[in-house]
């Protein structure tokens, strides 16, 4: 029984990692070896050089970095006070409002594609990085997560800070936010990886090199100009996902701990 479980785990692991391994294989070898395995195939970085020069990837990297940072900072800034209000302040209609916020969790973002495009074009934000980010800045998931964390902060800590003369904002900043750090890290990771990989919405809302994020840039690159050269496409793909992959491998332990502490698994 136990042997079966281990075999199953290995099988799933291999299935999951196979495409990645194939990508690594193809990217580091000349095109001739893309579909033909040989232990002595010569290693090369030529594919990366070619991919990097074939499309403005530097610009795409910049765009994605700007986009991801903008979304992350705005989500932290907007979700924190909202979550605090839902967790610790008393005001009429609080629970109803919170239920409405939670409703947003059930709406798939793709459903709103057309509506969002319409609004953003009225705002004149089509083909801007702010335009890509705007629909995601107020996050129900973030508000929910932070509210749950803030509610676990002992009331006596809040009272102690109040007695020492801290204002509402000072208490939020000096007591609640530091105590919720694991949640911020975990949520930040989810947000960054989601927006790094997000494709459909940026594809719809952007149409120039100066705004396109990596995902869209990669799609444009691999479909038209290159024909189907797997070596170069896999090299470009590895290149674009490398920062996330590296970050996760480096900080794996901290991430997992944060997830455990934040109660997301």
């Amino acid at each position: 029984m136990r042997g079966l479980e281990i075999a199953g785990a290995w099988l799933l692991g291999i299935l999951w990692v196979a495409p990645l391994l194939y990508a690594v294989w193809t990217a580091f070898h000349p095109a001739a070896y893309a579909t033909h395995f040989s232990l002595f195939a010569p290693l090369t970085l030529h594919n990366f050089v070619q991919a990097w020069n074939a499309a403005p990837f530097a610009r795409y990297f910049l765009n994605t970095t700007l986009l991801v940072s903008l979304v992350l900072v705005a989500q932290f800034v907007l979700c924190t006070p909202a979550a605090f209000a839902f967790a610790r302040l008393e005001f009429p209609g609080r629970d109803t409002l919170f239920a409405i916020v939670l409703l947003q969790l059930m709406v798939m973002p793709d459903v709103l594609l057309v509506g969002n495009y319409h609004i953003l074009s009225q705002l004149g934000l089509v083909d801007t990085i702010l335009g890509i980010a705007l629909p995601y800045l107020g996050s129900a998931f973030g508000i929910f997560l932070l509210r749950q964390t803030f509610r676990t902060v002992p009331q006596e800590l809040d009272d102690a800070a109040r007695l020492e003369g801290c204002t509402l904002l000072a208490r939020l900043w000096r007591v609640y936010v530091p105590l919720a750090r694991p949640t911020y890290i975990a949520y930040g990771l989810v947000s960054v990886s989601y927006h790094w990989n997000n494709f459909l919405w940026p594809l719809v809302i952007t149409n120039s090199v100066s705004t396109r994020p990596l995902t869209v840039g990669l799609a444009v690159f691999s479909s038209v100009e290159q024909g189907i050269d797997w070596s170069i496409i896999t090299a470009a793909t590895l290149m674009t996902s490398a920062p996330l992959l590296l970050a996760f491998l480096l900080f794996q332990r901290q991430f997992v701990q944060s997830f455990m502490r934040a109660g997301i698994r």
Binding site: R162, L163, G165, C166, P178
Partner: peptide
């Protein structure tokens, strides 16, 4: 509370877990 001239020791002590002893004491 802050203008009443009272200090308080809570039943759970209410020490801030993210601050060290010195920072806890001079927090106020």
């Amino acid at each position: 509370p802050a203008e009443r001239g009272v200090a308080m020791v809570f039943q759970s002590y209410a020490l801030f877990p993210h601050l060290n002893v010195e920072e806890n004491i001079v927090f106020g």
